[in-house]
Amino acid sequence: MKALVSVKRAVDYNVRIQVKPDGSGVVTDGVKHSMNPFDEIAMEEAVRLKEKGVISEIIAVTIGGQKNEETLRTALAFGATRAIHVKEDGEIQPLTAARALAAVFKKESADILLCGKQAIDDDANQTGQMTAALLDIAQATFASKVDIADGKATVIREVDAGLETLEIDLPAVITADLRLNEPRYLKLPDIMKAKRVQIEATNLGDLGVEAAPAIKVTKTAPPPARSKGVMVKTVDELAAMLKQKGLV
């Protein structure tokens, strides 16, 4: 069984986001980037499935500019067997990404696409679902547990009311939530080996994919600051306010 794992290069989760003073976006120059943490979880899950013998090949895919190669190297250090770089310098929105992933998925005759539930830069939470729709296959989003057997996946999903279980036929798309697993430390020897792997390059044209219509970002602003509220003098006042707001 073959798994595709899509990995995105995003501003590192430790970085405090700075909005540019002219409102044209956030500062990304000279800022640490790393693999989207939810994609790391997806990657880890793929490696665990491979260790269990459920899947035999893990292909990491990324879409973006030259620097995304680092992200593929990280995926290789995790344990991806191959890495495909869909080279595109412009901004890639979810629908275009989904078209590219669907094309790679078909070309590779993959059985499963694992990806993070969302990327921590645009927070869209769309690409996995869109890819499943384009391929007309099943999806299980927000996965917190995955079992694969007999051409089917049983997935526990984190939904608002609790944990939902779905059974889906493969091929399918599974998007990883935070609690699916805890990604391992990358070991230096694995990182060293990953440096020597040949990355396969392609682009949207080669994949026969047309960029989708895009949403235009017209302004980026920092979130409004919280304003100071009221000070109460007594517990009675506080209790009354909480009751009045229907909070207790």
Binding site: E182, R184, Y185, K187, L188, P189
Partner: peptide, 20 residues
């Protein structure tokens, strides 16, 4: 290089990775 995955009390956590 430093070991990874050593707990606060010095024990090896499940993801312990010895430094190279």
């Amino acid at each position: 290089v430093g070991d990874l995955g050593v707990s606060a009390n010095g024990e090896h956590k499940p993801d312990f990775a010895p430094g190279m």
